[in-house]
Design a protein around this nucleic acid. Sequence first.
DNA 1: CCTACCGATCGGTAGG
DNA 2: CCTACCGATCGGTAGG
Lengths: 197, 197
Amino acid sequence: MVESRRRAIEDVASELFRANGYAGTSVRDIARALSLQGPSLYAHVTSKEDVLWAIVDRAASRFEAGADAALARAGSERPGDPVHAMAALVRAHVHAVTEDVGDAGVFVNEWRSLAPARREAILARRDAYEDRFRNLIAEGIGVGAFGITDPAVASTVILTALNGVVTWYEPDGRLTADRIADHLVGLIGRMLACETL
Amino acid sequence: MVESRRRAIEDVASELFRANGYAGTSVRDIARALSLQGPSLYAHVTSKEDVLWAIVDRAASRFEAGADAALARAGSERPGDPVHAMAALVRAHVHAVTEDVGDAGVFVNEWRSLAPARREAILARRDAYEDRFRNLIAEGIGVGAFGITDPAVASTVILTALNGVVTWYEPDGRLTADRIADHLVGLIGRMLACETL
DNA sequence: CCTACCGATCGGTAGG
DNA sequence: CCTACCGATCGGTAGG
């Protein structure tokens, strides 16, 4: 199957880019991981950067779909409850990271290696993704549910903490993805909704 | 002065490594930023990796010294007050990042490019640095000042959020380093010491 | 600190 | 999907 070859290349490249960076990974490194010769990859892809773009694009789509589904579900379960919605958003993000740490790591750290047009496109999507957090925090402040003052700082701090999971999550480690999500929902919920500080 | 040339090379390399990664920066890139020819650098350094090591090592020393000074001061100001000590630790970390985002970015993200012996040495120092946070959190839990349960998760989440400042701090931006430190002290303080969640 | 140069490796193409 | 190969660039050395 033609499509699965292309997909296998992206999967292998995703893990290598995450571990060694885009510039630190050669086309021959990717080929070797698939037991191929370097030039053979070009029967399936048109350039190294196209592979990076495919990984970043699919990772972005996965984060976006996860967040939108979480917000839709939380909105129907408990309308107008920003604490509940934030918990759903945090949980969705953690699962998007842990489901594919390769893709998530490349999405978070390697987008700088994209050519300008694609880099700007992905930056716009990252901004729109962060807006989901920022708008929800502003809403929570507005209804008096959150005791903080600056939605922009809070959303950035929360997202960097969430993206940090990509650097320390171990699939066979002491904490499952669900437990990590529980911890982050708790920690971030306290940070936002605490009433005594 | 011989030493200042070496230092100028490290300073330029620090910013380039942070912006483009170690593998994405060539020796000629560093030389060009100093208006030199590539091979001329080797009159002052013995290898590209030695430059990376010098940057990572001095960044680590700066983080360590800042944290130790903050803990010593907080301990003499308010002995046995983990909330106050954590605020001092957070403030020290934010300032270590904002004082030199190049060094901090390389320390946080580029240590993977070090050869094994140096990589392990820096990992040990990173672990010891994180221990300052983890031990303080465990102490705070022990005396009932913190309402959380897992010092290891909390210290990791806090440190990734603090290190994230390197990705969004802008020296001429809307927020000064001091204001950013204020925000993080507040957000992390709420996360740890909140009593109502 | 320069020019000239080294072997190795880079992303990618030609042709089968 | 392979072999053979391209020009460009890599980190680094020799010799001045």
